[in-house]
Amino acid sequence: MSAKTEFVYVTYISATPQKVWDAITTPEFTSQYWGKNMVSNWKPGSKWDMASTDGLNHVNMTGEVLESRAPSRLVISWVSPENLGNAGETSRVTFEIEAMGDVVRLNVIHDQLNAGSEMAKGISGGWPRVLSGLKSFLETGKGLDIKSCSTSKAA
């Protein structure tokens, strides 16, 4: 078995746990700061998909909901569609949402990743962007660059 690696990301957001939960689990929100639709009923055992927002619903990441305790804890498996069912290529993402006074501490732990893999490289660039986008979206209502990007395409 190849060596595994993990990443831990933390961000503090001025919002309620429920708002953070909704922002992660609702496609109308994720499309605005993540640039993807995160689609599932978020019940343990259900499938989840990360789908494109261009109307083609191209799925570029998928997995299963392993644990779901709104609004404080969500654990999902994480695999690219071509590796679905391949345990060696499947990693795990844990969202921990914790109220601390008037802010929320959001921990994202992405573990069981193959060290040095393209997936590990990709997500280590991806999560910081997604999480600062999420923070900005909840605190200012703007999802950073995603909107300006799509506007420029339309223009």
């Binding site: 990443f7 831990v8 990301y9 961000t11 910081p128 962007r129 999480l131 600062s132 923070k135 900005s136």
Partner: peptide
């Protein structure tokens, strides 16, 4: 265990 958390740096970058 200690992990690099680049989220605040990304905020500055953005």
């Amino acid at each position: 265990l200690h992990f690099l958390n680049p989220v605040p740096i990304n905020e500055i970058y953005m």
